[in-house]
Write a protein that binds this DNA or RNA. Structure first.
Lengths: 208, 208
DNA sequence: GTCTATACTATGATAGAC
DNA sequence: GTCTATCATAGTATAGAC
């Protein structure tokens, strides 16, 4: 009977993952209240009751997707290496983040929507885990500045600025496309954006 | 009867404005689908049917608030003066935008929510009015660069960067507060934020 | 013209039966 | 694992009172 029970577990895992993929799409596009279980079920290719067999409540699906997304989303931030070259580390991080905005805007949008509406589901996470992580990386940046390897800027606001700028291309996607219709259609748009952003971030806009 | 009709018109004007204020609060906090007419009516201190007497449909309230907000929101951008000193104009604009994020985060949040979910109500506005305006100001910046008054950066991405960064303090308010609990409590938080941002924007983070 | 009370209807989350 | 029923919510409509 082990073979049988294993198979069921595997189906469960597959179905849960299908549901979560569908939920990410729907929730990121319409927000929590704006999304319906019907929509998610349809996109997942299963009936609503069947979906509810895996996640009894709408909120369960949402929180699961959100937590899963946060992990991925913060991975490159965690990867900032105190031992690396400061400018290179921040350049790498910015490019990485921008690439994620290009390839998986839904993750950014899901997160943005949650924060925008007061972060009802992840308040605690922000105040504990995220704060701790940001404090740590801000410390790293402060050390770099103390060592003269970066200009003396506020580490926290620098982090906010990189977050804001890179996520803008995911969260405000439709606005960017409305303003730059031809450019955004090109394959190298995000490479060019990365160049432009890094030029400003590294050197500023004051004439030399 | 002119006195009478004037008085009625005045009541209309007052009530409409009360409703729109309440609607801004509610819609910015919960998004379109997440907000209910009941919530708006309660915050406006009137019954739901009474509110519907002024705005027959939920969508009417939303669109009216959104359009009204956009006007205010873009005013300082329009004010960027081609004849002014480039660095000073952009500094002024950034500070102004940041001040608005501090004082009226709801406006930014309402707008962010609309864009985030695909801008269903203002697609046309983005592609026509906003695009035209941004093209114009990007031209101004390009001229400044050509005159050697600004470093050679991409005008569009510079504008996006200023928007993203300044609006971040409104849209991601709860996150900023979660990470900087003591600092955000202080009265001069936004002044310091402005300093930090402008230092990075003007000079970059490369060590000199 | 302004406001209230009430009712209708669709939607969507959830529970229980098969 | 699936289908149907329920129940609350919320948008909208109507009738009429002040």
């Amino acid at each position: 009977m082990t073979g049988n029970s294993n198979k069921q577990t595997r189906i469960q895992g597959i179905n849960r993952s299908i549901i979560l993929d569908a939920a990410l799409e729907v929730f990121s596009a319409y927000g929590f209240r704006g999304s319906t279980i019907d929509q998610i079920a349809e996109k997942a290719g299963m009936s609503k009751p069947n979906l509810l067999y895996y996640f009894p409540r709408k909120d369960d699906i949402y929180v699961t997707v959100l937590e899963k997304t946060l992990e991925d989303w913060l991975a490159p931030f965690k990867d900032i290496d105190p031992a690396g070259d400061p400018v290179e580390e921040l350049r790498k991080y910015t490019i990485q983040k921008l690439k994620m905005s290009a390839q998986q805007p839904e993750r950014s949008q899901l997160f943005a929507n949650e924060i925008l509406h007061g972060a009802p589901s992840i308040q605690k996470f922000l105040k504990s885990n995220l704060k701790r992580l940001v404090d740590e990386k801000a410390g790293v940046i402060a050390d770099w500045i103390a060592a003269g390897k970066l200009a003396p800027v506020d580490p926290y606001h620098l982090i906010f600025m990189i977050w804001a700028t890179t996520q803008h291309y995911a969260d405000f996607d439709v606005q960017v496309r409305a303003i730059l219709p031809e450019e955004t259609a090109k394959a190298d748009f995000f490479d060019k954006a990365a160049d432009s952003i890094l030029t400003i971030l590294l050197n500023g806009i004051m004439p030399r």
